[in-house]
Amino acid sequence: MTVEDHLVKHHVIENPAAQDQTVEDHIGLPWYVLEDYRCFGCSPHNPHGIQLRFTHHGDGLRTAFSLGRAHESYPGVVHGGLLGVIADEIMGNLVVLRTGLIPFTTGMRLRYVLPVIVGGGYDCVAKVRDGGGQLVHTEAEIREDGGALVATATASYQTVSLDAAHARMSLDTSEIDRLRRALAARTATTATSPGTLSEEPHVSVD
């Protein structure tokens, strides 16, 4: 199977809002070339995860989500910490797609405005604020389907090359090779502002 075959591979998902997005709509993340990756936020293979899918939204990304009682805090209310997961997930994947590098979150801040209701439909969009320096700065906002703002987030990411990052990941040589090609392929098809984000690693991870 080629890298591109992997990228459009259909996945069974449990997030009902995500199921509204067709295979053609959602972005094939570089991680899809890893048959068994278990990212809590975006893996289609983790039954305990939230299985987010992303679409392009201008220069940024969008994801639709609806969470159930497994993600509850107060009765009928989604746990607020999960909004951080969703914001981090969409912003982190945006950095991956824009740079082809591996981002590590160095800081994130959330402003909570409204509670997220179990079973409710929500949208999260994210964009890069600036990425010319040591860190890539991003922002995201979560809204109800009706448009009401429920949370905003800002975050900073330190980006490293896959070569530098893989020592901290459980990947074999074959997986690293596939992931490297997928990162390059996704960056080639999604980078819209190459002048604003460096494609060179900013730091090394030892």
Binding site: R109, R111, Y112, V113, L114, R129, E139, E141, L149, T152, T154
Partner: peptide, 18 residues
């Protein structure tokens, strides 16, 4: 209180401050 929070969120976004 929700509307006040929306105002705060909008101010933070428009000025890029926390």
């Amino acid at each position: 209180s929700v509307k006040v929070l929306r105002v705060v969120a909008r101010i933070e976004r428009s000025h890029d401050v926390e």
